[in-house]
Design a binder for these strands. Structure first.
Length: 556
RNA sequence: GGCUGGGUAGCUCAGUUGGCAGAGCAAGCGGCUCAUAAUCGCUAGGUCACAGGUUCGAGUCCUGUCCCAGCUACCA
């Protein structure tokens, strides 16, 4: 059962607006959206935030290449993200952009607080600089006869650059971080990620730089090296202050969205976040840098960080640069919005890397959605219409019904896995019940009962109503439970079953879902079933093989 | 190199405190007909990476070897 809090604040990491969205980046958003919808349906006031990270020299360069202003460039990128998220039924309460005015204020305020607390200081940042990629890690460069190069651009000699930057005193927080990890084993999950982070902390923490020279595209650093304010009399910012570098910009989005610093009441309500959902590549920044930054500002650290894995294609991480990504729009076109969400969350484990392919997604869609669940609803509605004239039969008491007796354990398992962020396992638990439903049909054979009814056998009609009532109820429960994952499907099923669907498009507004997920919750209410309409048309594999397959994801 | 986690049926993976190797999908066969050629039942003979060891008995513990992945700080 969920820990019924007074509110739930959940975030995804913000996507780097340098590239168009791919399914591998939206995968995290789909998972977080499903969780957000679940808490909304539980009746917990929920705030779900996702968005885009829009500053960086890289983005300014990309914009310049296209002959546009950075602002025009990111606006166009953001439109692509929003369109893809709309297609996937993503329901953010706030889509935050790091170029938003309130975010700029939040980031600057965080810098001021760190400064006031003595946690930042001017220093020298130096290292090998690649004109294409910026500063390179010492372990990423190679010494050659021609000079020092980075592996991605062997023709471009690296330059040794020194910059005068501000540094954050992360080293001062080592003990507190270590204690924080030790005292809260559930804070960073899964466990192996937690262990990695803890090991990193124990290995010693260095300060990190948080400013860069002014590039014309970034949040102005609000303090000059001498400690005075960087804002000029006319309200503009002194370029000599430079800009805030990535982590004191991007990470801040989570508190901006909660109301920091403009709306103290909202901030008090929503912060600290209950759950940051992030990818494993940025675990360190979210579980080590971020808490320290918050503490420095006198704020609380997030309550939980969930680190998911990557989608892999033939063993390699999906990415734009590799070209082995999946276009979200193609994905939705093939599987539908609900189907796309389902197969992504069911096929890839939310706690680890998962190899996926167009083929396994298609198989999963056909097996789970078309055959198992879609057909289960279809045959149930069809039989109820044919044998009972469309009057919705009531389920029997759980004690008299195999399905009713099995349901509570299924539901509990589903809820436990879902709230534990093991979304794929939650769905698997639910689908066990779908299988039980189909087996129940075979065991009872309503078409045989129909003949008995026709022959006037005593008790046959009652048996028919009981069996079909159980089946209708099973359809209702599964459709409702899986609504956070397939929000478009649930109302369609309810309509066919003659039940009301009381939730808004984003999952708000309805009764507490746990009450609705009781066997027989609406047993006493009359209703009329609609005509059976297939929910998930089968996808013929031949169709997939023939065309419309993104090249990168098609059959090898 | 160091640390961590893995290598189990064609594919994806479960395997609790050591006790006759499991599930789903795919494939083959059979049944049924309410249903989206769906569904239900049966079938799968996998040296549980490899080699040793402990034990009455090891996928499950110990040692060694091979292979894979992750982490080993400033990329968003």
């Amino acid at each position: 059962m969920p820990d019924l809090r007074d509110r739930f604040y959940i975030t995804t990491s913000i996507a780097y607006a340098n590239n168009r969205p791919g399914l591998h980046t939206l995968y995290e958003v789909i998972g977080a959206d499903a969780l957000a919808r679940w808490y909304r349906m539980c009746g917990v006031p929920t705030r779900f935030q996702t968005g885009t990270d829009e500053h960086s020299v890289n983005i300014a360069m990309r914009a310049a290449e296209e002959g546009r202003s950075p602002r025009d460039f990111v606006d166009a990128q953001v439109a692509l993200f929003r369109a893809a998220e709309d297609a996937l039924f993503i329901s953010p309460d706030r889509f935050i952009r790091t170029t938003d005015a309130d975010h700029v204020r939040a980031a600057q305020e965080m810098v001021r607080r760190a400064h006031a607390n003595g946690d930042i200081y001017p220093g020298i940042y130096e290292g090998w600089y690649c004109p294409n990629e910026g500063f390179r890690n010492a372990t990423d460069v190679t010494e050659t006869a021609a000079g020092t190069i980075c592996p991605n651009h062997p023709d471009v000699p690296l330059q040794w650059l020194s910059e005068r930057n501000w540094f954050f005193r992360l080293s001062a927080y080592q003990e507190r971080l270590e204690r924080w990890f030790e005292d809260n084993p559930d804070l960073v999950q899964p466990d192996h990620r937690r262990n990695e982070m803890l090991g990193f902390i124990r290995g010693g923490l260095e300060d990190f730089s948080i400013s860069r020279p002014d590039s014309g595209w970034g949040i102005p650093f609000p303090i000059l090296p001498d400690g005075s304010g960087a804002q000029l009399a006319d309200g503009s910012w002194d370029p000599a202050g430079g800009t805030i570098y990535v982590w004191y910009d991007a990470l801040i989005n989570y508190i901006t969205g909660a109301g920091f610093p403009d709306d103290p009441a909202a901030f008090a309500r929503w912060w600290p976040a209950d759950l940051h959902v992030i990818g494993k590549d940025i675990a360190r920044f979210h579980t080590i840098f971020w808490p320290a930054m918050l503490w420095s500002a006198g704020l609380e650290a997030p309550r939980k960080v969930w680190v998911h894995g990557w989608l892999l294609a033939q063993g390699e991480r999906m990415s734009k640069s590799r070209g082995n990504f999946l276009e979200p729009i193609d994905f939705v076109a093939a599987f539908g919005s609900d189907g796309a969400r389902y197969v992504a969350l069911r096929e890839a484990g939310f706690d680890r890397d998962s190899d996926v392919s167009w083929d396994v997604f298609t198989r999963r869609y056909n097996a789970d959605l078309a055959n198992d669940f879609g057909n289960f609803v279809n045959r149930t509605v069809s039989m109820a219409g044919r044998y009972l004239g469309g009057e919705r039969p009531a389920p029997r008491d759980a004690a008299e019904s195999p399905l009713g007796a099995a349901w509570p354990a299924v539901r509990d398992q589903f809820v436990a896995k879902l709230e534990g962020c093991l979304l794929h396992e939650a769905l698997a638990a639910l689908w066990e019940f779908v299988g039980a439903g189909n087996r129940f049909v075979e065991a009872e054979q309503p078409w045989v009962i129909a003949r008995a009814v026709k022959a006037g056998e005593e008790g046959a009609a009652e048996r028919m109503r009981g069996v079909l009532g159980d089946l209708v109820e099973a359809c209702r429960l599964v459709a409702l439970a899986v609504a956070p994952v397939m929000p478009g499907m649930a109302p369609r099923v309810m309509q066919q079953l003659g039940h009301e669907y009381a939730y808004d498009a984003d999952g708000n507004g309805g009764p507490a879902i746990l009450d609705e997920l009781r066997w027989g919750a609406h047993a006493g209410e009359a209703g009329t079933l609609a005509a059976a309409v297939p929910l998930f048309p089968r996808i013929e594999v031949e169709t997939v093989l023939d065309g419309e397959v993104p090249e990168a994801m098609g059959p090898a």
